[in-house]
Write a protein that binds this DNA or RNA. Structure first.
Length: 214
DNA sequence: CACCAGGCAAGTA
DNA sequence: TACTTGCATGGT
């Protein structure tokens, strides 16, 4: 109850400041999935360049990506960094999609969420945050996405201790908020924006909308 | 120049 | 379980 109240207070403070962020940026399910993999430990602006290059080559399409050679894909996504390993990660996902779901995203997202999450985590290169981003933003299914900003903000506001795992933090949100897909999407988006603008690694801004809550 | 960015896997102890 | 390291580009 106490936790729920804090989380809603934070949500409303951030929501008043940033407004509706309409996440995830991306026009199709496959584009969102590709972005989720490419943005791993990488600035989003670099990912945008890579995605635009794929778009201009009409490659935001699992059927096309199934056929593409490693070298061509590496060259196209190079601006997003880790381009060799990310090429393999993208192809790992595409292989998975065709092996178990006939290459169809509607099939991928038609079953049980918990099972889907386990399956995604089997794909080499998809960890918890990437799996949850795919499920929430591409699949439009209720799950909360945790990232480095989430940990930093929760720690700085004494809502979790340093030893908390990803699952601990995810449960913290999912157990104390309404199970509302739109809220989950917006809350994570608000956290990322707060992290980018106010709560960077070694800078804490006095104008952060959360400062006045303390 | 150093440090950071919407992680993950593999190795070590 | 809990650290450590490699992966790579582009902005500040």
């Amino acid at each position: 109850m106490q936790h729920a109240k804090k989380l809603w207070t934070i949500y409303h403070a951030l929501n008043d400041h940033f407004g509706d962020l309409h996440w995830w940026p991306g026009e199709s399910q496959i584009e969102i999935i590709i972005g989720a993999i490419l943005t791993q430990n990488t600035a989003w602006r670099n990912v945008e360049v890579a995605i635009d290059r794929l778009r201009s080559h009409r490659l935001l399409d699992q059927h096309k990506l199934l056929r593409i050679g490693d070298e061509e894909l590496e060259a196209l996504i190079r601006p997003s960094g880790y381009y060799r390993i990310k090429t393999q990660r993208l192809k790992n996902f595409i292989q998975f999609l065709f092996t178990y779901y006939d290459g169809r995203l509607d099939k991928l997202f038609s079953g049980d969420v918990a099972l889907l999450r386990k399956q995604l985590l089997q794909v080499k290169g998809i960890g918890e945050e990437t799996a949850d981003s795919i499920i929430l933003y591409a699949g439009d299914k209720p799950i909360f996405v945790v990232d480095a900003y989430t940990r930093r903000i929760l720690e700085r506001h004494f809502l979790i201790d340093k030893r908390a795992t990803y699952g601990d933090m995810q449960a913290y949100f999912m157990d104390h908020l309404l199970r509302d897909i739109a809220v989950f999407k917006q809350y994570h988006a608000l956290i990322v924006n707060t992290g980018k603008h106010f709560c960077t690694k070694n800078a804490r801004c006095e104008t952060c909308p959360l400062q006045k809550l303390k």
